[in-house]
Simulated assay, not measured.
Amino acid sequence: MHDDDPVLQTLMPATHDLGGFKVHRTLPHRDRTMVGPFVFFDQMGPAHLPVGEGIDVRPHPHIALSTVTYLFDGAIDHRDSLGTIQTIEAGAVNLMTAGAGIVHSERSPVIERAKGPPLSGIQTWLALPDGREEIDPAFEHVAAEALPVFGDARARATVIMGSLWGKTSPVTAHAPTIYADIVLEAGGAVPIDADADERALYLVDGAATIDGRPLEKMALMLLKPGIVATLRSEGGARVMLAGGGAFATPRHVWWNFVSSSRDRIRQAREDWKAGRFATVPGDPDYIPIPDVPKTVSYP
């Protein structure tokens, strides 16, 4: 890394084969737990599942975080213990705030299964800030057409959360957050400003550079604080921009639980084992506590 290199750190993904599709996970990472409030960053697919099949993520619990689901292709039925039933399609946002505790499931819609469902998108978890980890659980859905867009014919940036390029998303942000989906055509470019404490770029597809430095596909590349840079593509690309305010207090991650307190995570584990979480109406199945979870924070 040279002094003029805009990239501070590159996080390569751990890839998990979930049967029919792969998930590429860059957060949490052995070398870094968070980027702004983002404590979990998964790329789902791209995949095309066989006719009659689909994803079936059985009911499972969360605490002290918000899940943000954003699809490039396909659809997912969300159900939760608040009684929410919501289908998310490409370009829309599902924001589920766990707070003191919530349970949800994610399954392919019946109509999608009948034709062999596509699946492609990003799912992230955002830690709730100090003093707000135990807020009441909530859910909101924001349609694709409600998200603001910046750009021109060769560069289109959708602001998923926060304020960027003079545009502000209607999606609730519990902590300072920036999150955007940037689609570049051949020769397209967008500025990346320095407003957020921590910022990272993730190349979903194609090829792009940041101030001439090539992005690595499916890697989360953290930018140096304070720099203003330009994201460009000569042949076309899709890039996610994620970040926000730095957290003063570390967050711990174990399975589906996030908290500033390890004791709180232990309590959540016991509560799930004992059946003390609320259930999901119409979806009585559940995922038991694993002996060795795939999602853990690193010391």
Rank of each mutant, 00 (worst) to 15 (best):
P37Y: 14
E53P: 03
D42E: 07
R25M: 02
F40Y: 15
A47M: 02
L27Q: 03
V35F: 01
V35Y: 06
P59A: 05
V35L: 07
P46M: 08
H62P: 11
H48T: 15
F38P: 08
L49S: 11
H62N: 09
F41K: 01
T33S: 02
R25K: 10
P61G: 02
L27C: 05
P59C: 15
V39A: 14
M34Q: 10
A64P: 10
V39E: 03
L49V: 06
Q43I: 05
R32P: 02
G52N: 10
A64R: 07
M34R: 09
G36V: 11
V57M: 08
G36A: 00
T26N: 07
P37R: 14
D42G: 05
G54R: 00
H48K: 15
F41L: 05
R32H: 12
G36S: 11
R58A: 14
G54H: 00
T33M: 09
D56Y: 11
V57K: 08
Q43F: 01
H48A: 12
T33R: 13
T33N: 14
D42I: 04
T33P: 00
H48F: 09
T26I: 06
T26W: 00
T33K: 10
P50L: 05
E53F: 07
P37T: 05
H60G: 13
H62T: 09
D31H: 07
G45I: 06
D56I: 12
F38R: 09
E53I: 04
A47Y: 13
R58N: 11
P28H: 10
G54A: 10
P61A: 03
R30A: 10
A47P: 11
I55A: 00
F40H: 13
A64L: 10
V35D: 07
G45C: 11
F40W: 13
H29A: 01
I55R: 09
G45Q: 02
G45E: 14
R30N: 13
